[in-house]
Design a protein around this nucleic acid. Structure first.
Lengths: 324, 324
DNA sequence: ATGAAAGCGCTAACAT
DNA sequence: ATGTTAGCGCTTTCAT
């Protein structure tokens, strides 16, 4: 910066100003400085800038899994929206473990981020304490909370589970089952589904639960297990479209008709859900909007705006297609 | 840090030492300092540390798309491996655009990263120039290059395309077609496939190419287009497992048998490929190993080790399953 | 083994 | 509109 300044015949401060507050520099000086920057190929040092200004321009994001579309599909618009606001994102993967999450939060905090995105609302108490104590703007996404750390953008997994149960009744199915991943939010939907079914007069549905990440393989295996345990002629509610797709493939391999013999409902409306054969009935969650609104909410908090709305509900929608 | 020092009855420097070089501090003093850190809830400021030490502990990673498993599946082990070495990753998404990539590289460079991961080997010349000029350790992945910027970990897309063609011949198919995404690497495989087929005496295969991201919907549409143009009783080489899966679904919807009437070959062996019905023949690329080795290579360069191997070929493998 | 001094490259008051 | 001065919170010599 000193070099650029000499080349432009100004002081080093003026270069800094030209970069950060170009309106506070005479147009002609500005041009000279910009030319000098070009000539020298000067690259500003944001680390030094961050230290001096106490604004790191960094946002930390923690998601359970990068390779899981559920999460990467809201992370993408989040990164994009924060980038347009001048922020860069440091990403960490928690693998669904609150303990690892806590360690990562701690380590990320030392980067002096200006905000943080957390997936879900279940964190270790130490983690909550650190975040609360730091006063850092935090947005929790993909779930809803009565007591968010700061702001929360998501939807009610409980209500989503109930909505599926009501849909099952509306469509007149008499038998129902569940195939689910083992994460807290999926299990909550499963519990709500079972509770609502029961209150509608159904027997408690058989449940197959997997601790491994949701996959087509698990979906196939899940249907196999249900059939072996005597399940037939009913609807299966899956905790993800991927599991549902697996169920469809297994049904097809066994020559079972869908939705005639086995009906299937997915969750989240991934882009392929409309294009399976038959097309997949599912719960749609607008992850693009969720990512954007999470960014908006966090940026507002960083800008110091009062958090009038600490809880944003992006809702969900039951999508009726052919599979159930 | 000053506070911690006072509490432990030492100087601020000793606290810094206790954190960075614990072996250079008397065990008893170390214990006192650690206790003081715990008591105060002190969180080190890595921004200041980075400025003073000139080591940011940051690695920048650029991938075309976060929501595309092709890329996120090598990014994951890369992030994990670099994390274990004490680094944090700033992620940026280029959307397949070399121009955007260049802008992002420039903006990322000002974070003083210690290394950078780039996807592919095709970059704007300005981008290459900046990186070369900066002397920053760079690893280019998912492709191979005669002239890497620094080090390169990938495989030959040309050879992969040829391998598929030879497989097609070996299996005795007489008609072949291609459905491909529009990115440079997929197109290169397509060209190699067509060239090899031709040299084996086949006619030039019909090609359907999509500019949108590979998807099941595109796969279905691709088969539809091929059939409308008179293609039948042959094998279709797809640039991704997702496209291949779409082809299988469309075939099923039309009552075409696989591989009898339509045979399908995918690319990359995503986890579902072994679990479709019928299972999907494909080219396997070990993305876990690729991510790890990219991290290894980059960390070695950061550690200043001479780059004896500037080019690492992780290879690929033709996986024979039922679909072709 | 520990401390004192200097400075990393920049920004934010405060002058002029 | 521009420059001067004083740090930001740490790490790194260098001394003791």
């Amino acid at each position: 910066m000193e070099m650029v300044a000499r080349l432009a015949g100004v002081s080093q401060v003026s270069v800094s100003r030209a970069l950060n507050h170009p309106d506070k520099v005479a147009p002609e000086t500005l041009a000279r400085i910009q030319e000098a920057i070009r000539a020298t190929g000067y690259v500003p040092n944001l680390v030094a800038g961050a230290l001096a200004s106490r604004r790191s321009g960094i946002i930390a994001a923690l998601i359970p899994s990068i390779t899981n579309l559920t999460y990467s599909s809201f992370l993408r618009p989040f990164i994009e929206a924060t980038r347009l606001a001048g922020y860069q994102v440091i990403l960490a993967e928690t693998g669904f473990s609150p303990d690892d999450e806590q360690i990562m939060v701690q380590s990320l905090l030392s980067r002096q981020p200006e905000g943080m995105l957390l997936t879900g609302v279940h964190h270790s108490s130490e983690c909550r304490r650190m975040l609360l104590g730091s006063g850092l703007p935090v947005v929790e996404v993909w779930d809803e909370s009565e007591t968010p750390i700061d702001v929360c953008v998501g939807f009610s997994h409980w209500e989503a589970g109930r909505a599926v149960a009501r849909y099952v009744q509306k469509k007149g199915y008499t038998r129902a089952a569940v195939i689910t991943a083992g994460d807290m939010r999926a299990l909550r939907r499963k519990d709500a589904f079972a509770a609502e079914l029961t209150s509608l007069g159904y027997p408690s549905p058989p449940v197959v639960s997997f601790d491994t990440p949701a996959s087509i393989a698990n979906g196939r295996d899940g249907l196999k297990q249900l059939l072996e345990n005597g399940f037939s002629n009913g609807v299966i509610s899956c905790s993800s479209d991927l599991l549902a797709h697996g169920v469809m493939i297994e049904a097809q391999a066994r020559g079972l008709t869908i939705p005639g013999e086995i009906a299937v409902i997915g969750f989240s409306d991934q882009d392929f859900a409309a294009h399976t054969f038959p097309s997949l009935s599912t719960i749609r969650v607008d992850r693009l909007s969720l990512g954007r609104r999470a960014a908006e909410a966090l940026l507002a908090r960083i800008a110091g705006k009062p958090a009038e709305t600490r809880r944003v509900d992006v809702g969900f929608e039951m999508i009726e297609r052919e599979s159930a």
